[in-house]
Amino acid sequence: MELGLAGRRALVTGAGKGIGRSTVQALCAAGVRVVAVSRTQADLDSLVGECPGVEPVCVDLADWEATERALSSVGPVDLLVNNAAVALLQPFLEITKEACDRSFDVNLRAVIQVSQIVARSMIARGVPGAIVNVSSQSSQRALTNHTPSNWGPVMSLLQIRVNAVNPTVVMTPMGKAYWSDPHKAKVILDRIPLGRFAEVENVVDAILFLLSDRSGMTTGSALPVEGGFLAT
């Protein structure tokens, strides 16, 4: 299905690894010019090597002032993917202030700040852009030790469509490492009717659909990519 994204300009946060990196690669393949944001310069360097033309921005989104400086001059953006996140998994009674602060700063506050920066430009240019926030099934169902990261913001901004994708465990390198224990994985897999975790491309396909005009009447929605987990 042709998504009609060619010629647009996108900004992707958390672009160095996993879902963010694969999203950048898919957008580039679709003819989109991409600004890739990561806090790790080495990841950006290797990404630019794979996808010439990507515009790298190295910044820690937990730093409000640094983010403002880094992104205020990136220029017009038509599409935004808020993918950057931290997963600091702690039992509820052992959650630390540091974990709360870091999770809030990256998983929520940075989403608001980056969306503000991009939306202001969209509104000033009269562009009906699209924003996709990468969230999690854990924003809608409680999971053990996931309390600090259980946010999943979805907003609507004038003529800017804003949606979220809510995947289950995704088989990124980090996902494979954390869920490689079959006993730990079984707890979640037993609640997924399809009986498997998500692959990265499952999530990327959902992101690209929500960015495209094919989802032109979809806004303020959270799209589950979780094999039926939320239905159980």
Rank of each mutant, 00 (worst) to 15 (best):
P52R: 14
V32P: 00
E98N: 15
V48P: 04
A206T: 07
V200K: 00
T96W: 13
V48L: 01
S73D: 07
M122T: 03
S121C: 07
D78V: 13
N163I: 04
K176Y: 02
L223G: 07
T40G: 08
I112W: 14
A142H: 07
T232F: 08
V200T: 03
G152Q: 09
N82A: 03
E201L: 09
R102N: 02
P182Q: 09
R109A: 15
R196S: 07
L210F: 12
A42H: 05
N202L: 02
I207L: 10
V134C: 10
I192Y: 01
E68Q: 00
R69V: 12
T40W: 04
Q25L: 13
D213T: 15
G216L: 09
L47R: 01
T13E: 05
V106F: 11
A87R: 02
P56M: 11
N150W: 05
L3Q: 07
S72G: 11
A110E: 03
V34P: 11
A15Y: 01
R9G: 02
V169I: 12
S215V: 10
A26C: 05
T96I: 11
N145Q: 09
I160L: 01
M171T: 05
V162H: 10
T168Q: 13
L27C: 15
L88R: 05
N82R: 15
R141I: 13
V59Q: 11
Q140R: 15
S115Q: 00
F209R: 10
G227M: 05
S156C: 13
V24I: 00
V127R: 04
V106I: 11
R141S: 14
P167H: 05
F104K: 07
S212V: 04
S46D: 14
L88G: 08
G14S: 12
F104Y: 06
R214T: 02
K97Q: 13
E65L: 15
D43P: 02
R21T: 00
C51F: 01
L3A: 01
E50C: 05
S38K: 09
A66F: 02
A124Y: 11
V86R: 09
Q159E: 13
G220I: 14
R161K: 00
G7S: 03
V165H: 08
S72C: 09
Q159C: 12
L157T: 09
L88W: 06
I160W: 10
A10G: 00
L208I: 06
A198D: 04
N202I: 05
A142E: 09
K176S: 08
V74D: 09
D60M: 09
L93Y: 14
I160S: 06
P173H: 13
V200Y: 00
T23V: 04
G220Q: 06
V74E: 11
R69D: 07
A99D: 07
R214D: 02
A231Q: 11
N150A: 15
L93H: 15
A62P: 03
M171A: 12
E65M: 10
P182C: 12
